[in-house]
Simulated assay, not measured.
Amino acid sequence: MNLAERVAIVTGGGGGIGSALVARLAREGARVVVADLDAEAARAVSETVDADHPGTTVSVGADVSDSEQIQQLIDLAESAFGPVDFYFANAGVGGALGLDVSEQDWDRSIDVNLRAHIRAARLLVPRWLERGEGYFVSTASAAGLLTQIGSATYAVTKYAAVAFAEWLSVTYGDRGVRVSCLCPMGVNTRMLTAGEDSGDALGRAATRAVTSAGDVLEPAEVADAVLAAIEDERFLVLPHEDVLEMYRQKGSDYDRWVRGMRRYQSSLLAQA
C-alpha cells in the first residue's frame, strides 16, 4: 500500500516506537492522528512532526482500551483528514512480575495489550470490507513468539496479540484487509529499562533477558522495518532477524526450548 495521502491512527504515539512511526508516516506523505494516554506527549510529537511536515498530524489524549474513545479517534481522523486507511495498534503496557499479580494488573494488561486491538478491529474492519481495503498493524513483541522471563501478564497478552493479528489476516486477508504484526526484541524505550529500575531481581532478569539476547534498536529503526513490511504487505515484522531462528528452534523441539529457557532464567537471576 502506498502511504501518500493515506490516513493513519497511531496509538501510543507519544513516545518510543509510536512517535517514530508518526514521524516516518508523515515523511511518506500520510496524515496521522497521534493518540496517547498522555495528551501532552502526543501533542509534543505532533508539534515536532508538523514543524517538518506542516498539517500532517493532529493529536489527542485517549485511553484506547475503551471502545468509545477508539470511536472518537476514528471520528477525529475522518473529520480532520478522511476515512481511516491504517490503524497502528501500538499502545502497550509492561507487565507486572511473577505469579502473585492482582486481578487489576491482569485486566489492565489484557485491556491494553489485547482487547484494545480487538475493539479497534471491530470498529474498523466492517468499514474496510465495504471499501475493499484497509491495513491493521499490531505491535506485539518477540515475547509473543518466544515468551518473556519475569512477566506472565506481558508474555500472555503478547502471545494473544500475535494470535489475534494472525486470525484477522487469515479471516479477512482475501477481502482486502491487510495485517502486519510487529515482534521486536530490545528497543530503546522506557519500557525496556523498567525492569532494571524496578529494584526487583526478577525485574532485572526480565530486562537483561532482552538486552543480552540481541541488539537494542532505536525506535526509528523499528519504524523503518514496519514501513518496509507494509510496502511488501508482509505479516510478520521482525526488526531483530535472530528472532526467526529462535522461533524455529523452539518449534523444532519445544521441550528442549523450555529447558533452555529455565537455564537462561537461572543464569540471569544469579547475575541479578
Rank of each mutant, 00 (worst) to 15 (best):
L123A: 14
A225P: 00
F86D: 02
Y247P: 07
A201C: 06
Q104G: 06
E28G: 09
G186W: 12
V177S: 02
D253I: 12
L124C: 11
N2M: 10
A160D: 01
Y264P: 09
G92Y: 01
D224R: 13
R256G: 08
M246T: 01
A206V: 03
V222C: 01
R259N: 06
D224F: 14
L73W: 09
S198V: 12
P184H: 09
E78W: 14
D200Y: 11
S180M: 09
R262F: 11
E47W: 13
C181K: 02
D107M: 10
G199S: 04
G132M: 08
G12P: 01
D52P: 08
D224T: 09
V258W: 14
R204Y: 13
A30H: 05
G98S: 08
Y154Q: 05
V170P: 03
A205R: 00
V60N: 06
L269G: 09
R256C: 06
A51I: 02
V187Y: 07
V33D: 01
A229W: 05
I17F: 14
S59V: 07
G29R: 00
S65W: 06
Q104I: 11
L3H: 03
N2V: 04
G18H: 00
G134Y: 11
G260Y: 03
I9A: 00
V93S: 01
S252H: 13
N2T: 08
A121P: 05
G132R: 06
A143N: 03
L73H: 06
A23R: 08
R131W: 13
S252K: 13
Y154S: 04
G61T: 11
L269I: 05
L114G: 08
S266V: 10
Y159F: 15
T139P: 07
D253W: 10
A194I: 13
A41H: 01
A26E: 04
W106P: 00
A225Q: 03
V210M: 02
A225H: 04
V243Y: 01
V34L: 00
A39S: 13
